[in-house]
């Protein structure tokens, strides 16, 4: 008799392992959208998290204020020194902006890769197991958020993209997550700009890897890296970080630059979801055109 029970347990274990593998396989597929029950569960917990997030952000705010007070003096000193340069910079920006608008008008070019409209959102949850680096925000499809939109932290640096959306909440995948599909077309700004793609995160050194830069590119430290807008979804010119180090890749055909991200990936309260104004042409249209040419 005990032998029989042992077998029953063994079968249960085996069946559950099969179910486990099937479920993981199901959820690892490239999914356009989550299933309806999943969306419902996420929205329902999102509602509860929303209730808790207000007192949480208040408590955190109090502690941060105290921390801020401690270094007010040194901060004030530094800000004052920067203030002198600011007035000139401001007038320069104004002038350049105006000039840019005029030139655009002459060229009759209205759309720009760098134009975008932001949607403000608050972070209401974060993945506690720290493997997946996902955030949950309190805006969803109702507010016009779509999959793959860029997400920017409150200080303007890019932190990730929208992984999935529900009616009232959405999930953000941070740049630090290891996901081969998480790629951003980026540009190193300088006298010559070089293009590459952000393709991963070095956990040990806490640096982003900017790969596929031409081998002859001369890259200096402290050069700024921004999105290039060539990927089709992200707008142009969102800052990512600064170059720390470069090294040739394994075959010597390209270079890899290590980029120190400008955003803090641990302390995120408010984010901005960025919707690009310029529409991406339909892929099928482009394919058709090419065929005609041939």
């Amino acid at each position: 008799m005990p032998q029989f029970f042992l077998n029953k347990r063994l079968i249960l274990l085996l069946v559950s392992i099969i179910i486990l593998v099937a479920l993981i396989g199901f959820s690892l597929r490239e999914r356009e959208e989550l299933t309806v029950p999943e969306q419902f569960l996420k929205d329902a917990t999102g509602w509860i998290q929303n209730v808790f997030s207000k007192p949480q952000s208040y408590v955190k705010g109090v502690f941060e204020n105290i921390k801020d007070l401690q270094n007010t003096y040194s901060e004030n000193k530094e800000l004052k020194s920067r203030l002198d340069g600011l007035a000139k910079l401001e007038s320069d920006v104004q002038q350049l902006k105006k000039e840019n608008d005029e030139l655009r008008e002459i060229l009759d070019k209205k759309d720009s890769l760098s134009a975008y409209s932001p949607i403000q959102a608050t972070v209401i949850g974060r993945n506690p197991d720290r493997w997946h680096e996902l955030l949950i925000i309190n805006k969803g499809k109702v507010n016009g958020i779509e999959q793959n939109m860029a997400v920017v932290s409150s200080n303007g640096f890019i932190i990730g993209k929208v992984k999935s959306t529900q009616q009232f909440t959405s999930t953000i995948q941070l740049l630090t997550a290891m996901d081969p599909t998480n790629r951003i077309s980026a540009e190193i700004q300088g006298t010559d700009s070089y293009f590459g793609t952000i393709e991963g995160y070095d956990v040990e050194r806490e640096l982003l890897e900017l790969k596929r830069i031409p081998y002859d590119a001369k890259i200096q430290k402290e050069q700024t890296v921004v999105t290039s807008g060539l990927g089709g979804i992200f707008p142009k010119g969102l800052p990512i970080g600064k170059v720390v180090d470069t090294e040739p890749d394994e075959f010597g055909l390209n270079q890899t630059a290590y980029v120190k991200p400008g955003a803090n990936f641990y302390d995120i309260q408010n984010v901005m979801v960025v919707k690009r104004d310029m529409m991406q042409p339909n892929l099928s249209d482009m394919v058709d055109d090419e065929e005609e040419e041939l």
Binding site: S16, I17, I19, L20, V21, L23, I24, F26, S27, L28, L34, E38, L41, K42, T45, G125, N127, P128, D129, W131, H132, L134, I136, K163, S164, T171
Partner: peptide, 16 residues
């Protein structure tokens, strides 16, 4: 199951 759906989006690991 709730943990998988809400936090990780990969169903199965915590469920198991």
């Amino acid at each position: 199951l709730l943990f998988d759906v809400v936090y990780t989006e990969i169903i199965g690991i915590y469920l198991f």
